[in-house]
């Protein structure tokens, strides 16, 4: 038992950077292909991060180092808890801790770019946080438990019972992966009106930490996605693969929207879809 727990902890800690980095590399190649380019090598994200670790340590405010570390810690714990099949709400709350610390770190710089980025990130959190909780509630209404364990005990894929909540999750995914039209606070692409938004004043090794933490988060949200098809590993992989492909496609075909649109559309659509699905589960 203890051995299993330890193994899962290690698996979670390792899977985050490894899978997350590979996914990021894959993402960049695919995006390049969408734009009829060749794109970087698959391992490019790892090169970037290793290079960043080798750069000179330079900070705007020492609390940036604190916040980046706290972000990484929270993100990795939330993934480990996911691997341990723990409580969904608990995972969400811990993941939110990381997101908040990243924002506070950006706030600690007086640069208007960081500040504006930080606010936009807060608005993004505001937009997706309730939607994630609805998904957890949907899972609770169906399985009778908030524990991920209960999802794996299901005989039928969750997708069939929570189709609308899956759409809501895709919505959250777009925000969380920093894809257009919701790459408001920062993104991997040239982003000139905001420089690099939230990440503007993070640099060198500290930037590398936030990058790794982002990988952990990516794996976590894709993990949530995989919960919708737990009966068959192949099904889960296929579901996550298709979802991610669609995400990149959306990223490439849409322009960036403003936060009013995000919040209005996100809440209106997200809450309606969730409500429909929840009421359906509730009544049944």
């Amino acid at each position: 038992m203890t051995g299993h727990v330890l193994m899962m902890i290690v698996a979670g800690l390792v899977a985050g950077p490894l899978l997350g980095g590979l996914i990021a590399g894959f993402d960049r190649i695919l995006t390049a292909r969408f734009q009829s380019r060749i794109g970087p090598p698959l391992l490019q994200p790892f090169y970037d991060v290793i290079k960043l670790f080798g750069k000179e340590k330079q900070v705007v405010n020492v609390w940036q180092a604190f916040c980046a570390n706290a972000y990484l810690t929270a993100a990795s714990i939330s993934l480990v808890l996911f691997f341990l099949r723990s409580d969904l709400l608990l995972i969400l709350f811990i993941q939110a801790v990381g997101a908040v610390f990243l924002v506070v770190g950006a706030f600690s710089s007086t640069s208007p770019y960081s500040q504006a980025g930080a606010h936009r990130e807060l608005l993004q959190i505001l937009c997706y946080e309730p939607l994630l909780i609805f998904i957890a509630v949907g899972i609770y209404l169906h399985t009778g438990s908030f524990k991920i364990e209960a999802v794996y005990a299901l005989k039928q894929p969750l997708l069939l019972k929570l189709p609308f909540l899956f759409l809501v999750l895709n919505f959250v995914l777009t925000i969380k992966l920093r894809k257009s039209p919701f790459d408001l606070s920062t993104s991997h692409h040239a982003h000139q009106e905001l420089v690099k938004g939230l990440l503007t004043d993070y640099s060198g090794p500290i930037l590398a930490l936030t990058e790794i933490a982002h990988w952990y988060e990516t794996v976590l949200v894709l993990g949530f996605c995989s919960l919708f098809w737990t009966t068959n590993p192949l099904g889960a992989i296929l579901l996550v693969g298709i979802t991610y492909f669609v995400e990149i496609w959306i990223d490439n075909v849409s322009a960036r929207m403003n936060w009013r649109w995000m919040l209005g559309y996100g809440w209106a659509m997200g809450i309606t879809l969730s409500l429909v699905n929840l009421v359906w589960l509730y009544v049944r």
């Binding site: 090598p41 490019q44 790892f46 090169y47 970037d48 290793i50 290079k51 670790f53 080798g54």
Partner: peptide, 9 residues
């Protein structure tokens, strides 16, 4: 590794 990463990024 670091040198390689630097050259590639």
């Amino acid at each position: 590794i670091l040198t390689k990463a630097r050259m590639l990024s």
